[in-house]
Design a binder for these strands. Structure first.
Ligand SMILES: [Mn+2]
Ligand SMILES: [Mn+2]
Ligand SMILES: [Zn+2]
Ligand SMILES: [Zn+2]
Lengths: 148, 148
DNA sequence: ATGCAATTGCAAATCGTTTGCAACTGAAGT
DNA sequence: ACTTCAGTTGCAAACGATTTGCAATTGCAT
């Protein structure tokens, strides 16, 4: 098993450094986030947390998410319609394509688009702090169906 | 005064065509939308509507916005943080740059970015139904300050 | 082990938005 | 103009996601 070091940000360290206590519920939530491959919302994180420690409350999940967002450890996405969804921040920047039929979230990155955004902002006299690019679509039907 | 025909979508006609009654409150809301240069939210539209007809309710504003969105007469934007904001749909597609300090919404369009989005979706096996591109930034300080 | 500020779970509050319902009204027919 | 009735309204209550007050608990520095 060629096991390369998994990109697992050291959340606890990051938090301690930010002067935040590492409590029982936070440990649980942090571990869930660490190995979440998807983009779970607060309720989903709560459910996964309860499996590990039944004493955790949804409020704490919300509070922890806000705290993690505050220290820049996670990113919050407010995709069309649904509740906020989260993902670890320690990954390279990317944008999202949401499958309108399945709800699947596909990640992509275009350096060219990123550049163009900068260029546009610059021309308008602005510095971009952050941006949001979301494509909403459905699987192309017919011809050569690739993937899936 | 070289007065070119203003791009003022004929909302009433559009609605009648969609089998919708033109009521008093709707007339008011429609007129407000017709000459709104900004991207007002429901409450703002409600306030402007009350100025014209004090009997209008916020519920009706919400219901009308949903109806207009349904027939494709307006677009709904859910910018970061705030409530939904609306704008007439009868304008050419564009995306938005939000000034984080003032809340101002600046419109822009990049055919190049639109193309790249298509390209990306295509490669992933998707057809884009719609998308959302929002830049959040602040006025660039220093050097040659242009505008404002 | 002690002390205390940080954190928790719970319930209640909040915000933007939607909905049930009885009263009202647009507009089609006469 | 008068009737008719489904579409529409205002109001208040419900809603879903998220936040918050508070008393009890707990991390962690001493
Ligand atoms: Mn992602
Ligand atoms: Mn616009
Ligand atoms: Zn991006
Ligand atoms: Zn666009």
């Amino acid at each position: 098993m060629n096991q390369t070091t998994p990109i697992r940000p050291d959340y606890e360290g990051e938090l301690r450094k930010a002067g935040v206590r590492i409590t029982r519920p936070r440990k649980v939530i942090l571990s869930i986030l660490a190995d979440a491959g998807d983009h779970p919302d607060a309720l989903e994180i709560f459910k996964r947390a309860v499996e590990i420690d039944s004493g955790i409350s949804l409020s704490t999940v919300y509070r922890t998410m806000k705290l993690l967002e505050g220290v820049g450890a996670i990113h919050r996405h407010a995709f069309e319609g649904g509740p906020s969804r989260f993902e670890p921040a320690g990954v390279e920047h990317h944008d999202h394509l949401i499958d309108l039929d399945t709800g699947d979230v596909i990640e992509f990155h275009s350096e060219r688009i990123e550049e163009l955004q900068q260029e546009i902002a610059r021309e308008l006299g602005y510095d971009i702090v952050h941006h949001r690019l979301e494509l909403y679509g459905r699987r192309r039907r017919g011809k050569v169906s690739r993937g899936g």
